[in-house]
Design a binder for these strands. Structure first.
Length: 476
RNA sequence: UCCUUCUUAGCUCAGUUGGUUAGAGCACAUGACUGUUAAUCAUGGGGUCCCUGGUUCGAGCCCAGGAGAGGGAGCCA
């Protein structure tokens, strides 16, 4: 039986076996206490070993990090801090952990240090809480889409198209790294490669998602995505998980409604199902905030922040309106933005943060960006200058969702591919959907880790995925 | 990739103007303690001061180069 279940039981004479990893052991003259955790919950169960119940040699092996099974009966706790505890009759040691060498100590560790021991960090309170919340959010994603008649579409991880334009790609090849076969003009001959052409890891399942939507109407993908960008920030990973719904007959407005409803559902799901873990993470965040300057401290606790998002409407404004608000802001008039503000610029982080964190103080959906700063597949507005794009910006995180209504007119789409220099032959299959039964449709991409970041209150994306992949780092 | 800060014990950090044998807290070990909550108290062990080279009578500290990490920016999700 797992500790989560045992902690909800009433004391009885029934003998129980509890297996887990030792967090701490406290020894007094006549009694020893063992805090045991098995990852099923943030809470430990306390084992009480009375004098003589377990041999001294065995008790000596019970150290922080060791894996043991305790057998005993559940009794009401005499101490404070827990209502029940296990009166231990015997202990079996599965795996010892040399306390001189085991790196996790019963004390606070820095997140940087824990990243270096990512193979052990799930055994800490913080990371086990994060991983449980991450699981709940993943489950919420599938639950939401299933409840709303979406079909889960598996888009390829190895892709032969290089037209997605979302970033640098990782090449997939079976050719030898030294002396690969060459063409006559000295380039690598990918005709000799496994697929007979150049292939890469996907940077987005969107294009294939659109193909699915043109048959199943409502689809979503949820899978790993790879970007070979040399990004070194707290919100980028080389390997991350992306959620991409794509819906036939949806226009930009519907797309916004879906994005808002979906994120609210997921956050609410985590609040409802991970109360203990979120409470722990809230306390952790509070301790962290105390080390910051007063003006940088958040006014809201983690739970308050999450409830605020689920209970309030997202602010929806166009790019043009956002530029006007920025131009009229004190910050701009006093020249306190580092980057200039004018219609046509791609908004900088400082502009987005100001809008979200200072001006509106809630999630903001920005729409109708200039076409020149957005992707080729976005539907052109009537004015011919802007496209039906939308970005959802979250406080502290920035862009969490990027999406659009897609261009469904064959000629206009072809025109745009030419303008941005994409070869027609490389995405003929994508263009054909606009030739045969084209339909208005829209979708977006949501970075799963950014959602986990927001819900857990963590600040570095490397701490919300079990094994982060970033430039120069692929250990574990 | 750019800017910036950092790298000293297992962890978190101090280390004065360049000067004898490099410190603290926690962790760990041993002992004490009648039920603890990251127990407490006492005692003890523990160092390639990131690496390479240089300046100097003398370098943890100054200089040059390199590596790694953090934060910010860009790219984006």
């Amino acid at each position: 039986m797992q500790i989560k279940e045992i902690l909800s039981l009433s004391p009885s004479n029934q003998s129980l076996v509890i297996k887990g990893w030792v967090r701490t052991k406290r020894v007094s003259a006549n009694v020893a206490f063992i805090a045991l955790n098995d990852g099923s919950t943030i809470h430990n169960i306390q084992g009480v070993v009375s004098d003589g119940a377990v041999s001294e040699e065995t008790l000596k092996l019970v150290t922080t990090g060791a894996c043991i099974a305790m057998t005993g009966t559940l009794i009401p706790s005499q101490g404070q801090g827990q209502s029940v505890e296990l009166q231990v009759n015997s202990i079996e040691v599965y795996g010892v952990a040399d306390p001189e060498k085991y790196p996790l100590q019963p004390k606070k560790h820095s997140l940087e240090f824990l990243r270096e021991i990512a193979h052990l960090r799930p055994r800490t309170n913080t990371f086990s809480a994060i991983l449980r919340v991450r699981h709940a959010l993943a489950y919420a994603v599938h639950t939401y889409f299933n409840q709303n008649q979406f079909f889960y579409l598996h888009t390829p991880i190895i892709t032969g198209s290089d037209a997605e334009g979302a970033g640098e790609m990782f090449r997939v090849t079976t050719l030898p790294a030294t002396n690969p076969p060459l063409t006559e003009d000295g380039k690598v001959d990918f005709k000799e490669d496994f697929f007979g052409k150049e292939t890469n890891l996907t940077v987005s399942g969107q294009l294939e998602g659109e193909l699915g939507a043109m048959a199943l109407s409502k689809v979503y993908t949820f899978g790993p995505t790879f970007r070979a960008e040399n990004s070194n920030t707290t919100r980028h990973l080389a390997e991350f998980w992306m959620i991409e719904p794509e819906v036939a007959f949806n226009e930009l407005e519907d797309n916004m409604n879906l994005a808002e409803d979906f994120t609210k559902f997921c956050i609410k799901y985590a609040l409802d199902h991970c109360a203990d873990d979120i409470a722990f993470l809230e306390k952790r965040l509070l301790d962290e905030e105390k080390t910051k300057k007063k003006e940088e401290q958040s006014e809201l606790s983690l739970t308050e922040k999450l409830r605020f998002v689920t209970e309030n409407d997202f602010e929806r404004i166009t790019y043009t309106e956002a530029i006007n608000i920025l131009l009229q802001s004190k910050t701009h008039k006093q020249g306190k933005f580092q980057y200039p503000v004018e219609w046509g610029i791609d908004l900088q982080s400082e502009h987005e943060r100001w809008l979200v964190e200072k001006h509106f103080k809630k999630p903001v959906i920005l729409t109708n960006y200039p076409k020149d700063i957005k992707a080729f597949y976005m539907k052109l507005d009537e004015d011919g200058k802007t496209v039906r794009a939308m970005d959802v910006l979250f406080p502290g995180i920035g862009e969490i969702i990027g999406g659009s209504q897609r261009e469904d007119d064959y000629e206009k789409l072809l025109q745009r591919t030419k303008e941005v220099g994409i070869e027609e032959e490389s995405i003929w299959w994508y263009l054909e959907t606009r030739k045969f039964g084209s339909a208005p449709h829209a979708g977006f991409g949501l970075g799963f880790e950014r959602l986990v970041l927001f819900v857990t209150g963590m600040s570095n994306i490397r701490d919300v995925i079990p094994f982060p992949r970033t430039p120069k780092t692929a250990e574990f």
